[in-house]
Design a protein around this nucleic acid. Structure first.
Lengths: 152, 152
DNA sequence: CTTGAAAAGAACTGCCT
DNA sequence: AGGCAGTTCTTTTCAAG
C-alpha cells in the first residue's frame, strides 16, 4: 500500500476532477513549484497509484441515452460456467463493465444503449442468451452524480 | 445528438483507453496529420462529446481494497424525501457515485472502504441512518473488467 | 524543497490545396 | 475537410542554493 501525505492527496483530488490541469497551475494552488509538483505526479504514476488518464465521454450526446445496470444470477456456477459467462459477456459491445460480485447476484453489468427499444434488443438477444444465465434484474439510470470520493 | 464519422470514432476509442496519447502519434496511426487530428479532438470537445479527462486511480494501492454497490429502497419517496436523501448521501465521503434509478431500488450507490470492517462502519453509521432509507442490498465487487463500450 | 534556466516536445495558428 | 510550416506553450531535465 502506498503512503500519501496531504499534498499527494490534494494532487490526486485535483487530477481526478480534471486531469488536464497543468503542474504549474496545480503547484501554485498548493504552494509548490512546478518541478516539485511534477515530480510528485511522476512518483505517484511510478508507484502505481495513478493507473492512467481516461476520456470522460458524454454518452447522451453521442446517441447513447440509456444506461442500465443489470444484476445477473447464474443458474449453474461451477468454475467452468463462470469462465463461459465471462467470455461470452465480454463479446457484447454494449457492455461497458463486467463486475464479478458477492451478494444476491453473481455479476453486475453496466450496459449502454441508444434507447429503450435498443436496450430491449440487447437484453433479449444478447444478455438473456448468455450461457448459464438465471435471474436478471435491471435498474435504468435516471441520473448520476459523481462525488470526489474518500480522497476528497 | 452529435454525428461522428469512422475517424472520430477511432479517435474517441483511442482516447477512452488512454487519454495521454499525443495527437501526432494518434494521427500517424490513423493516416492523418498532427494538426488534422488535433482539430478533430478540439471539435469533439467543443461539441461536448468529450466532457473532460480524468485520472484513473488504483484504489487498492491507495488502501481502499473494498468496493461495494448498494441498492437502496426508500421507505417514503415524495419529492422532498428524494432531495433529503440526495443531500445527505452527498455528504458521505466514501460514496463515489449516486445514481437515481428505476427498478427494484430507488438509488444505487458506489461505495469504497478500506476493508470490510471499515465498510461495516460506513454502512451502519452512515448509510442506514440516511433519511427515508428502507431496504438496502449490497454487492461486494470481487473483480471488475472494463470494456471499450459501444464505440469500440 | 526552492528558483531559474535551458532543451525537447507537444499543442496551437495561419495559410494553402 | 486535410497538409505544411512556423509559433507558442508545457513538459522535462538540469544546475545551484
Amino acid at each position: 500500500m502506498i503512503e500519501l501525505d496531504e499534498t499527494d492527496r490534494a494532487i490526486l483530488r485535483a487530477l481526478v476532477a480534471d486531469a488536464t490541469v497543468k503542474s504549474s497551475t496545480l503547484g501554485r494552488r498548493l504552494g509548490l513549484s512546478q518541478p516539485a509538483t511534477w515530480r510528485r505526479i511522476k512518483r505517484l504514476e511510478e508507484a502505481g497509484a495513478i493507473r492512467g488518464r481516461r476520456l470522460d465521454l458524454d454518452l447522451e450526446k453521442l446517441g447513447f441515452g440509456v444506461m442500465v445496470f443489470l444484476g445477473v444470477k447464474l443458474a449453474t456456477k461451477g468454475r467452468v460456467s463462470l469462465e463461459d459467462f465471462e467470455r461470452a459477456v465480454t463479446a457484447i459491445p454494449e457492455v461497458q463493465t463486467v463486475q464479478h460480485v458477492l451478494g444476491l447476484y453473481d455479476y453486475r453489468l453496466r450496459v449502454v444503449a441508444r434507447d429503450l427499444t435498443d436496450f430491449e434488443r440487447v437484453l433479449r438477444r444478447r444478455i438473456m442468451t448468455l450461457p448459464g444465465v438465471g435471474n436478471v434484474e435491471a435498474n435504468v439510470v435516471l441520473s448520476e452524480e459523481r462525488r470526489p470520493g474518500p480522497l476528497g
